[in-house]
Design a protein around this nucleic acid. Structure first.
Lengths: 146, 146
DNA sequence: TGAAATTAGTTGCATAACTAACTATATGCC
DNA sequence: GGCATATAGTTAGTTATGCAACTAATTTCA
């Protein structure tokens, strides 16, 4: 097997493994230490709703890169915690609009601050150009595979 | 909130989300299409055993960036499929050495080929320098957080 | 108009993740 | 030697993921 091919295989564990896991774990830990009872997956849904409220579940699938059953269950759990509410769309009765509650709106600033702090910790020694390269590579990877 | 800080928060979804998910999903799909019944998580354990056989569970934790309960259950499932076997270490009876079976050895070439193909698809339009940057950023992120 | 195809969302089943609490063995140290 | 501490691994409980199969509403088009 040619050497440069093997190196590509190795890249799998880099792209898929340690960094994303480490960041997610740290952010989750920071939420917990701040007394916030939400998971990072739930937070990623709230994050998109803070940017634009009352999205359909399908739209949340697109924006969070999750499949429909995952979103169904994340919304189930967020609804149990009274952070979002499903409302049937009047135009298309197949659609559930997922809207934030006041309780969820109160979480926005504190959790985004924690996310910013976490990313600052994570990115010590990484410069802007490198960050741009990572983003562009990941966008290319995503586009190549979907 | 200053603009550049907010952008760092956004990076979370880039580092954690779409690319790693897309690569993992594609590799899993390629395994399935080739009639291979293993998950990518199981494969990532086998991958390290192909590099060095008969590692302790703790050593597999370190190398795969997983915690102990995760490795316990991955090994449980790999053992059910008769791909690895636990053997108590003679030097330290707390330690389980996890060793490959012949069946697992037979999977090495085909699955590493599939991983290489998948990464080649994923990395179309990405050059070597960019790959090196991603690897170095991820190593820095991991080191910063652990 | 009405049957076929598409779209939105849910449910069941298997695997995997994290935390916390647990058992068993080994090591350190007085 | 013997008790405290550390290390290796397991178990229980909750959440999340992927796939396949499902229901319900909407759109397409003959």
């Amino acid at each position: 097997m040619p050497n440069n091919q093997f190196k590509r295989g190795e890249l799998y564990s880099v792209i898929n493994g340690m960094a994303s896991t480490a960041v997610a774990r740290r952010l989750q830990k920071n939420f917990r230490q701040a007394g916030l009872e939400i998971t990072i997956e739930q937070w990623s849904v709230l994050y998109h709703l803070w940017k634009e409220d009352c999205l359909s579940q399908q739209e949340l699938c697109n924006r969070t890169f999750r499949d429909k059953p995952s979103i169904t269950r994340l919304i189930d759990n967020l609804e149990k915690q009274k952070l979002v509410k499903r409302t049937a769309s009047k135009e298309d009765r197949r659609i559930n609009l997922v809207c934030l509650t006041e309780a969820a709106k109160a979480l926005q600033d504190i959790t985004i601050d924690l996310a910013n702090q976490t990313m600052s910790e994570a990115l010590v020694g990484v410069n802007k150009d490198e960050i741009e390269t990572v983003k562009s590579v990941f966008q290319k990877v995503y586009d190549n595979l979907t």
